[in-house]
Lab assay of single mutants.
Amino acid sequence: GLPPGWRKIHDAAGTYYWHVPSGSTQWQRPTW
């Protein structure tokens, strides 16, 4: 699974990851 606080988001551009507490997003899968 993903580290705490991360969500996987799907949209028209593809899949990305959202860090809910900080509001940051990234294309790379977050690592622990």
Rank of each mutant, 00 (worst) to 15 (best):
P30I: 00
P21R: 07
W32K: 07
V20G: 07
G1Q: 13
I9H: 05
S22D: 04
P30G: 05
W32G: 09
T31N: 09
S22K: 03
G5N: 04
L2A: 04
G1A: 14
L2R: 04
Y16R: 09
A13N: 14
R7W: 08
S22E: 01
T31S: 12
W6E: 00
G5I: 01
K8L: 14
A12D: 12
K8S: 08
V20F: 10
P30K: 00
P3G: 03
W18D: 02
T31V: 12
S22F: 03
L2Y: 04
T25S: 09
W27N: 09
W6G: 03
S24V: 15
R29Y: 11
A13G: 12
Y17W: 06
H19E: 00
S22T: 13
T15Y: 08
V20Y: 11
P3V: 02
T15H: 08
V20D: 07
R29A: 11
G23N: 11
W6Q: 02
H19V: 02
P3N: 00
Y16K: 06
S22A: 03
G14Y: 08
H19M: 04
P30Q: 00
G1W: 12
K8M: 15
A13T: 14
K8W: 11
D11Y: 08
W32A: 10
D11L: 09
A12V: 11
S24H: 15
W27R: 14
G23S: 04
Q26M: 09
Y17K: 02
Y17H: 04
G5R: 01
Y17R: 00
P3F: 05
G23E: 04
R7P: 02
W27L: 13
G14D: 04
G23Q: 05
H19S: 03
W18R: 09
L2N: 01
L2Q: 06
Q26L: 06
K8E: 15
W32M: 11
T25I: 15
T15G: 07
V20I: 12
G5E: 04
H19I: 03
P3L: 04
P4K: 06
L2F: 03
P30V: 01
Q26E: 06
R7Q: 09
Q26N: 05
T15K: 04
W32N: 09
V20S: 08
Q28E: 15
G14R: 07
P4Q: 06
G5A: 01
P3I: 01
V20W: 13
Y16V: 07
W32R: 08
R7I: 15
S24F: 15
P3H: 01
H10Q: 13
W18P: 00
H19P: 00
A12N: 10
A13V: 11
V20N: 03
T25V: 15
V20E: 14
S24D: 11
G14M: 05
Q28D: 14
R29S: 08
H10V: 15
P3M: 03
W6F: 02
R29H: 10
Q26Y: 05
R29N: 09
K8N: 03
A13D: 11
T31H: 09
T15V: 13
H10Y: 11
W27T: 13
W27Q: 12
I9K: 05
W6I: 00
W18N: 05
R7N: 05
A13W: 14
P4D: 08
Y16Q: 03
G14L: 06
K8D: 05
G1Y: 11
I9R: 05
W32L: 10
Y16T: 01
G5V: 02
I9N: 01
R7E: 09
W32H: 10
K8A: 14
T25R: 14
Y17S: 00
D11W: 08
K8V: 15
W32Q: 10
W6R: 00
A13L: 14
P30F: 03
Q28V: 09
Y16E: 03
V20P: 05
G14I: 06
P3R: 02
R29K: 13
W6D: 02
R7D: 05
S22R: 02
H10G: 07
Q28N: 11
K8Y: 10
S22L: 04
H19N: 01
I9A: 05
H10S: 14
V20Q: 11
H10K: 13
G1D: 14
P30S: 02
Q28T: 13
Q26I: 05
G14V: 07
T25M: 14
K8I: 15
T15P: 06
G1T: 12
P21T: 07
